[in-house]
Every structure is written in structure tokens, then in C-alpha cells.
């Protein structure tokens, strides 16, 4: 086992408890955007298990598959075995980040050129993932960020965004809205 993942060992019993019934992915927004088995919450649990047991070598792809999550907890609420899926994901993200892998795919990012430093993002972030750095520039911690998008929605200067590819970026939401309106107009 890679030394970096020792902290995850405490989750071994919970990972064994997952019976992989798949109820976790029925309402998973990440899976809706990326409908591969490797994008399901149960797969994330298996990948963490693979890192723990040494069956799986860590890689950037593994880091992405584990860390891409919107922390909506639909998986946990559907899990009859009560596996703390998002707690495990959050700690695995931290371990992978420490090992040098990028874990920011579903995290928000701040455009410094547009940011007016009003700190609305800091005050609205439930995960306490946005903090000013030493120069006063708000910075998103990719490990703590839960990708809820509240900071992006509340930023008055449009400086915060989420990445394309998960159905939550400003452009993707705009397109979704347009498609919905067009569909509605056709029905009329």
C-alpha cells in the first residue's frame, strides 16, 4: 500500500459493508452526466478499496474517478447499508491531493481578473472551502469544495465558474434552459 493512503485504512470495514447493490447511483447527478460504471458511487468505493489493498496503482484517472462528486448525498440517502460514501470520498480526495494528483474537476475556480473581492463566496460556502489567501484573493480548496455551485451562482462579478462536462457550468446550464424553453414552445 502506498504510504499516502494509510489514513484511509479506517474505512476498510465500511468498504467491506458495501454490497454493491447499486442503489447509490440511481439518483447520482455525476452518473447522469457520465454514465459509466466507473462514475458510480459504488465504483468510487471500490477504487478506494483498490488503493488501500494495493490492487490498484494510483493515477490521475483514478484520482478523477474518485474525486468527481457533487456531495449531494443522494447516494448515502439511498444506501441501505448506511455507508458514509461522501466522507470516504472527501478523505480519499485529501490523500490523493497529498500524493500529487489533481482532484479539482468538480470544484469551483475563481478568475482573479474578474474577482472584486467582495467575499460573498467566502460567506456562502457551506463547506468552508473558499478562503482569502495572504493577498486577500479568495481561493477555492479543491479538496474541501463540494461542487454545489452556490459560490458561482452568488458571485456578483461572475468570477467563479464550474468546469464543462458535468452539466453544471454556466454555459451548460444556459443551454439546458434554452433546450427546455424550446421544448416547451414546441409543445405549445
Amino acid at each position: 500500500m502506498t504510504a499516502n493512503f494509510k489514513d484511509l485504512e479506517k474505512w476498510s470495514p465500511e468498504l467491506n459493508i458495501c454490497i454493491r447493490c447499486g442503489y447509490c447511483y440511481e439518483l447520482c447527478p455525476l452518473y447522469k452526466a457520465h454514465p459509466w460504471e466507473s462514475d458510480t458511487p459504488r465504483a468510487k468505493m471500490l477504487l478506494v478499496y483498490g488503493l488501500l489493498t494495493g490492487d490498484l496503482e494510483p493515477s490521475q484517472h483514478v484520482a478523477e474517478k474518485i474525486s468527481e462528486c457533487f456531495f449531494c448525498k443522494n447516494c448515502e440517502n439511498n444506501c441501505s447499508a448506511n455507508v458514509p460514501v461522501t466522507d470516504i470520498i472527501k478523505e480519499a480526495k485529501a490523500a490523493l491531493a497529498e500524493a500529487g494528483y489533481e482532484v479539482d474537476r468538480t470544484a469551483s475556480t475563481v478568475d482573479e481578473d474578474l474577482c472584486c473581492r467582495c467575499y460573498t463566496c467566502v460567506s456562502v460556502c457551506k463547506a468552508e472551502a473558499v478562503e482569502p489567501d495572504e493577498d486577500g484573493q479568495p481561493v477555492v480548496d479543491p479538496v474541501e469544495c463540494e461542487g454545489c455551485g452556490v459560490c458561482a451562482a452568488s458571485c456578483p462579478s461572475g468570477a467563479i465558474s464550474q468546469k464543462d462536462g458535468f452539466g453544471v457550468s454556466r454555459e451548460e446550464l444556459r443551454q439546458l434552459l434554452l433546450d427546455t424553453l424550446r421544448k416547451g414552445a414546441q409543445v405549445e
Binding site: W36, S38, L47, S59
Partner: peptide, 9 residues
Amino acid sequence: RDDPADLYV
């Protein structure tokens, strides 16, 4: 896909 992560799951 043939990435180890995908093959594993």
C-alpha cells in the same frame, strides 16, 4: 475504455 480504473470496477 481500457484504463485500469475502469477495468477494475
